[in-house]
């Protein structure tokens, strides 16, 4: 197990979500669920982050913000789409201003469904993301093309 996996830092962005999933992401950090015991820290700075936790169906002006945050994150990085809106657009899929899921803007590694996604499933998703993060790190160190 690498040091990266022992203490991954996450950045959270609300890309046009209803808040339901956002407050559940925050609830993960607080005493009942307490993901900090896994070494997971929430940061506000994309350049410090390993895992991008993103909620919401991504609207028109958020596309650019999401891409911007993603590009600022250092390699290796994983994206966790939290909530059904982030997965596919959810109930808002038919809205004129919603692009229909995070995958329309940036590549997603883990999908966490639910409306609102429960803290347990969010933690589960982040733990799965750790495995992918590790794979990506190995690939990057081995110099596989397209990983840097």
């Amino acid at each position: 197990m690498s040091y990266l996996q022992k203490s991954p830092w996450i950045i959270h962005y609300d890309a046009s979500s209803c808040n339901g999933c956002d407050i559940e992401v925050l609830a993960c950090l607080t005493p009942l669920y307490d993901v900090e015991r896994f070494g997971i820290l929430n940061t506000g700075n994309p350049k410090h982050a390993d895992i991008f936790v993103i909620t919401g169906g991504v609207n028109e002006i958020n596309k650019e913000v999401v891409q911007n945050i993603y590009e600022q994150m250092p390699h290796p990085k994983v994206v966790v789409a939290v909530g059904i809106c982030a997965c596919s657009g959810g109930v808002f899929r038919e809205c004129y201003n919603i692009s229909g899921g995070v995958a329309t803007v940036i590549p997603v590694d883990v999908y966490v469904p639910g409306c609102a996604a429960r803290p347990e499933s969010i933690i589960d998703g982040i733990v799965q993301a750790l495995g992918i993060l590790e794979q990506k790190r190995h690939a990057m160190n081995a110099g596989v093309e397209g990983t840097v």
Partner: peptide, 9 residues
């Protein structure tokens, strides 16, 4: 940044 347009739905 969060405008979805759900009133249209």
């Amino acid at each position: 940044y969060v405008h979805r347009g759900l009133e249209k739905l």
